[in-house]
């Protein structure tokens, strides 16, 4: 009885989270442009999507910005965690407080701050400024994912490897890095996701003439969003679903293998 209630609760929350997504997927196959009635199944919005240079360019911008900024954030963030590990606790705490600012700050304030900074320095806004801004709000995610993994245990492992005759670089690559890897990967994935989903910061730091999927959607809100954007999002969503399922299956398999190894 208790179990059934619990499962019903999970179901309700899931329905709440996924209902709008289901609605959008259904509408992307709707022949009419109306959002209220489903007239007939049609793939015409998918056709329009692939013929629209505007949307294809927004797609490329969104994903190239997400990949590059997540990579930058991952490298800068991981190095920062290693460097901070050698600092006094006081300096670490101070840096972590600054690290949390972009995370806790309102997106609108972060966006406006970055925009004003660019205006004062007369930096022309465009692809580069979006990239810089995205890396800025992604670095905290990487640091928070990697930091718990660098601890006394990894320090000891590293020292043990050195005692056994490994060089510093070799010990890091073979002993420490595999320990950090899950944190680094989840930091990267989080950064990538946040970058793709961001609208507000992009909105303030982009120049005229450059669009991501989010800014393109926002520009159409008042006039009515073209269903081809639903089609685009449906494709992205399905691809993400497949990729994440594969990662999940592989990870749980790896976890099982690890446990087996320990039992031996």
């Amino acid at each position: 009885m208790k179990k059934t209630l619990a499962n019903i609760y999970i179901l309700i929350i899931m329905l709440f989270l996924y209902l709008p997504i289901i609605a959008l997927i259904v509408l992307s196959f709707n022949e009419s442009k109306s959002m209220a009635v489903f007239t007939r199944f049609s793939l015409k919005w998918y056709e329009e999507l692939f013929q629209s240079e505007l949307m294809m360019r927004a797609l490329i911008n969104t994903f190239s910005i997400a990949i590059i900024s997540a990579l930058i954030a991952t490298v800068v963030g991981t190095l920062a965690v290693l460097g901070m590990n050698s600092m006094r606790t006081k300096s670490q705490n101070a840096l972590m407080a600054f690290n949390n600012i972009p995370l806790l700050n309102a997106d609108i304030v972060t966006g406006i701050a970055l925009m004003l900074f660019m205006l004062i320095l007369k930096i022309p806004r465009g692809y580069g400024t979006i990239l810089f801004s995205h890396a800025t709000f992604c670095i905290p995610y990487v640091i928070l994912s990697v930091k718990p993994r660098v601890n006394k245990r990894t320090d000891k492992l590293y020292e043990a490897a050195l005692d056994l005759g490994a060089t510093g670089k070799y010990a890091f690559r073979k002993v420490v890095l595999p320990e950090l890897w899950p944190g680094i990967m989840s930091g990267f994935m989080l950064s990538f996701t946040m970058s793709v989903d961001d609208f507000i910061i992009t909105y303030f730091t982009r120049g005229a003439g450059i669009n991501t999927i989010a800014t393109l959607i926002y520009s159409q809100v008042k006039v009515g969003i073209r269903p081809s954007l639903f089609a685009l999002s449906t494709i992205i969503f399905i691809v993400a679903l497949v990729v994440l399922v594969i990662i999940n299956i592989r990870q749980s398999k790896a976890d099982k293998d690890n446990k087996m190894a320990f039992n031996l």
Partner: peptide, 16 residues
């Protein structure tokens, strides 16, 4: 996962 459907669209879906 829902974050992969852009948040503007997800919000707008509530209009529907």
């Amino acid at each position: 996962l829902p974050m992969w459907m852009n948040f503007l669209l997800r919000t707008m879906a509530w209009q529907v």
